[in-house]
Amino acid sequence: MDGERRKILRFIGKGSVLAAFLAQIGAAGRAFFPNVLYEPPSRFKLKRPDDYPDGYTLDEAHRLYVIRQKEAFHVISAICTHLGCNVQWRDTEFDCPCHGSRFRPDGTVISGPAPRPLDWFATTVSPDGFLEVDSGKDVARDFRLVIGGKGQA
């Protein structure tokens, strides 16, 4: 009887050591898969300049407005600076439907609660002829990308 009890205790002891060893191996293996937040790239391509009509065009996928004034382009964020809602273009101004912020056509605040203007993003033409936006790089409010006769900046 005493021998049976010792076998069971020995089995439990060895099992505990094995479980602790496997837990350590699992924790060490977990280090190869870090918790990383993958964000979309800040630089991306849009359509060709000729694909945009004059005026304000919403790009829902990237949450921005492409503004074309004849041969000049600029890009304004469609994200309200208050709580991140999508602003809407209403013929003469941007409106935030969630909390009532209003912005001028250049993105400056008309009325809050938005604490700052909408962001303007750097815009270029890629070598293959598409508009290219860098949402990680702000530009001045008077920035315009002027494109010549054949879609070249």
Rank of each mutant, 00 (worst) to 15 (best):
V36M: 08
Y38H: 15
R30W: 11
V75T: 15
R5V: 09
H62N: 12
D50K: 14
C85S: 02
P40I: 05
V87D: 04
H62Y: 05
G84T: 06
L18I: 13
A19K: 02
F11C: 07
K70F: 13
Y52S: 01
L46F: 12
R48N: 11
D95G: 12
P97D: 06
V36W: 12
S42N: 04
P53R: 01
G13E: 08
I76Q: 08
I12L: 14
E71G: 00
Y65M: 00
E93Y: 14
L83E: 15
P34T: 01
F32C: 03
A72F: 06
D51R: 04
C98R: 06
R48S: 12
H74K: 10
H82S: 09
P49H: 03
R10S: 08
L22M: 15
Q24G: 14
I25C: 14
R63D: 12
L18F: 06
I25D: 05
C85D: 02
Y38W: 11
P97N: 01
V17P: 03
K14T: 06
R30E: 05
C96K: 02
G55V: 13
Q24W: 12
R43S: 10
R68T: 04
Y52R: 09
P41G: 08
L9M: 09
E60W: 07
Y38S: 10
A20T: 09
Y38I: 14
F44W: 07
D91S: 15
W89R: 00
V87C: 09
L83D: 05
F94N: 10
H62R: 15
R6K: 13
G26Q: 05
L37W: 04
K70V: 13
A72C: 06
A20C: 07
Q24I: 09
G84I: 14
E4D: 14
N86M: 11
L46E: 04
A20N: 08
L37M: 02
P40L: 07
K7C: 01
Y52G: 05
F32V: 03
R48G: 06
A28G: 00
E4Q: 11
L58S: 01
L83I: 09
F73E: 03
I79Q: 08
T57A: 11
Y65A: 00
N35A: 12
W89E: 00
Q69C: 02
F73M: 13
A31K: 15
A27N: 08
R48H: 13
A31P: 01
W89G: 00
D51M: 05
Q24H: 05
K47I: 02
V17I: 09
G13L: 09
L83M: 15
